[in-house]
Amino acid sequence: MSEIPTKSQIEELFGRYVDTIFPSLEKAVELLSSGKPLTFYLGIDPTGPDIHLGHTTNLLVLKKLIKLGHKVILLMGDFTAQTGDPTGKDSTRKVLDNEQVLKNMETYLDQVNKILEKDSYVVRHNSEWLAGLTFAEIRKLARHITVQQTITRDMFQKRLAEGKAITLEEFLYPLMQGYDSVAMAVDGEIGGTDQTFNMMMGRDLVGAILGKEKIVITTRLLEDPETKKKIMNKSEGSYVSLNDSANEMFGKAMALSDSAILPILTYCTEVSLEKVNDLAERLKNGENPKVLKEEMAKELVKMYYGPEPAEAAVENFTKVFSKGGLPDDILELANCAGQSIVDLIFNNKLALSRSEAKRLIEQGGVKIDEQTVSDWDQTVKVGEVIKIGARRFVKVVS
C-alpha cells in the first residue's frame, strides 16, 4: 500500500454508494486507514448472461477500494448459481446445470472490465472449495447456523404463509455464501442491502472459524423512489445490460420512468454529485423530464463507450424515435425467411421464450414493415423490417 488514505478519501468512499457498514463505520475507517492492505470481495452468481446497471454500484465501490490500495476479488458463484439465491424470491428458482452457468459467464469479465481495469482484481470461482466439501465438513459448518435465524427471513415466512415449498438446498444457500468468506480469508465483502443476511452469515463464520473481523459493506439498491421496486428487473426483461450496444443502452435508458433519472445518475455513474443535484433542481422546477433523461442516458453511454458514441446514440435515437427512421446499426438476420414470426423472435433471442414472443404479438408490440402482426404463424420474407417492442429493429436478409 503506497500511502495511507486520508479520512476524506474514506468518507468519500462511504458517502455516495454505501448504505450500512458492519460492525460500524468507525471500525471500517480504523481498518481502512491502518496502512495494511485489506482484501475485499464481491460475489456474482451467473444466473443469466448479463451484468446490468443494478450491479454497477458494487463495482464502483470496488473501483474506489482498488484506488485506495486494497486487494479486490471478483468471485464467480459458479457453484451457488446452480442453487440460486432465494433472497427476494417467493418460489424456488429454476435449477441451472453447470453448462448453463458456464455459458452465462462467458462475457462477465468483458462486462466487468468496462468499470474495473483488467488486471486490477483477482477472479475466483466458489466451485474451487464448495464442490469438494464432504458431508462431514458440511455437518461441521452447519453447527454455526440455526433453523431459527434462517426461517425468520421474510421470503421464507411469506412462503410458509402461502403454503409454498422451501427446499433444504435453498435453506443452505446462506451457509454456502458465508463459507466463501472463510475459504478466501477475506477482510470484507461488498453487496446490496438485499444481501445483508448472507453477508452477515459470512461475517459470523469468519469470526467463529478464523477468529478475525470481517467488514460488511452494503450498497444502496437501484430502486424507483416512487414505487420502491427495483429499476432493473431480469425476470421481466426490463434492464440495461453492460453487454448492450451504445444505441441499445441509450434507448433502454430513455424507456425508463422519469423517476429513474436521479437514482441511476447517483448510484450507477461517477457524475459529480454537484451535477446530480443540479438536475434534481431542474426537475423540481418543472423542466421537461425527457431532456433530463436524455442527459442521463448520454452520461451512461459516455461512461461505457466514450463521448463520440454517446453523441451518435443521441442522433440515432432522434432519427428513429422522433423522425420515424431506421437505426444505423439495424441487425440483419440471414437464413430466416420462411420462419414464423414467433420462431424468428425466439431463435434470435429477441424474447426469452416463445410464450413471451406470443405475448408481444398479442399486445401489438410486433410490426413487419410498419404493419402490426396479429398472427403467431405469419412467416417472414427477405427484405422485411421487423420492429419488436419500442426499440428493437431487425431486417431479414438472404
Rank of each mutant, 00 (worst) to 15 (best):
G163M: 13
V122N: 09
Q363P: 09
Y267S: 04
S374N: 14
L352R: 15
E295C: 09
P225W: 12
A310I: 02
A390V: 09
T47M: 12
N247L: 11
K64T: 03
S235A: 12
L38T: 03
R282I: 01
F171R: 10
Y17H: 15
L102R: 10
E128V: 12
I138V: 15
L53D: 09
F135W: 05
K36N: 07
V394K: 03
L60T: 06
G132R: 09
A185L: 09
I115F: 00
R16M: 05
K214F: 04
L350C: 08
D329R: 05
T193R: 13
D110S: 10
Y17E: 14
A357P: 05
Q111L: 00
Y121D: 02
K290Q: 15
K319A: 10
K89V: 01
P225T: 08
T196S: 15
E362H: 13
L326Q: 06
V61E: 01
S120W: 02
N113D: 06
V186F: 01
D375G: 04
N243A: 12
K381F: 05
V95N: 13
I261E: 03
K395P: 11
K103F: 06
N126F: 03
D244V: 12
L265Q: 01
K293D: 08
E370G: 07
A81Q: 07
G54F: 04
I231E: 00
I209N: 03
D224H: 09
R220E: 11
L38C: 04
L265F: 05
L59T: 02
K36R: 13
R391H: 12
N113T: 03
V342D: 01
K164P: 14
L74S: 04
A208T: 13
I190Y: 09
K252D: 05
G365P: 00
V112W: 05
T227W: 10
D194T: 06
N104Y: 07
G48V: 13
V240A: 11
A185Y: 08
E106V: 08
R354N: 15
I151K: 09
N104Q: 07
Q148A: 15
T218N: 14
K103M: 12
L53N: 02
L109H: 04
E223S: 14
L265N: 02
A337S: 12
K164Q: 10
T152M: 15
N198Q: 07
G338V: 00
M201A: 13
G338R: 01
K275N: 08
P307G: 06
F22S: 07
D187W: 02
G84S: 09
A357Y: 02
A337C: 06
A312T: 10
T150H: 06
M296K: 00
T20P: 01
A165G: 14
D377W: 05
E236H: 14
